[in-house]
Simulated scan of single mutants.
Amino acid sequence: MSRLVGMSALGGLIIAALIVGVMLLTASPAANAQTVTVHKTPWCGCCAAWVDHLHDEGFDVIVKEEEDLTPIRSQLGVRAELMSCHTAEVAGYVVEGHVPAREIRRLLEEKPDVDGLSIPGMPQGSPGMETPNAPDPFDVIIFSGEDARTEASYRGTRLVSEPARP
């Protein structure tokens, strides 16, 4: 009988080890989250709402509050026409403004040779700028140096169009 109890204990350990192994192999996206560093001013509420959007989408976020974002934007190559209310960094890319998490994920998956993404200004209905009013249409701009082009078009959180992939 004691031999049978020992075997069932061993069987329990094996089952527990298998369960842990499966859990490690199927870790949630949050467990494998990419870290986004967000530079924002201390008084910006929509920036905090965008940070919440990123958290909800499985990103780890580090917030750095700065009184003046100009030096950071200058260092990261964000031109005046691309600026919004906050600037983020992720995996060597710049993310300026209320860019949807979907576009950040796509940037990280495709790894294009660019500086980053931007949504200039603060369009109503973009992530962090939700409103009960009709959302503004906005474009996600992909940029590098002086080059910039539309990567995707949205109306609020709804993707309207994106360029065809080769």
Rank of each mutant, 00 (worst) to 15 (best):
P127N: 08
G128D: 00
S144W: 07
A148P: 05
D136C: 14
I62Q: 14
N133S: 15
G92H: 10
T35Y: 02
G116I: 05
V94C: 05
S118N: 05
S28K: 10
T87A: 05
G58S: 03
I119V: 15
P127K: 10
T26P: 03
V20N: 06
G77A: 08
E103P: 00
L25V: 10
V51I: 13
T131D: 08
S144E: 12
T37V: 15
L82N: 00
V22C: 10
A48P: 06
Y154P: 00
I62H: 10
W50L: 03
E66Y: 09
F143N: 02
D56A: 15
A148V: 06
G145A: 06
R102G: 02
L117C: 06
K64E: 15
K111A: 14
C44D: 07
I142G: 02
P132Q: 12
K40W: 03
E89N: 10
H98P: 00
L117N: 04
M83V: 09
G156Y: 04
W43A: 13
Y93P: 02
T41M: 12
T41N: 10
I62T: 13
D115E: 14
S84E: 04
V36T: 09
G116E: 00
S126Q: 07
V22W: 15
F138H: 15
T157K: 14
T157V: 13
E81N: 15
G21C: 07
A148S: 14
V95W: 00
M83C: 11
T131W: 08
V61K: 08
W43H: 13
I141R: 03
A101I: 03
Q34D: 15
A80F: 11
A88C: 04
G58A: 03
H53G: 05
V78A: 02
C47H: 06
H39A: 11
L25R: 10
A101F: 01
L25M: 14
R149L: 12
R155A: 13
P100D: 06
L82T: 01
R105E: 15
A33D: 02
Q34G: 04
A49D: 04
P135W: 01
A31Y: 04
F59N: 02
S74H: 13
E109V: 11
E57V: 01
S118D: 05
E66P: 08
I72D: 01
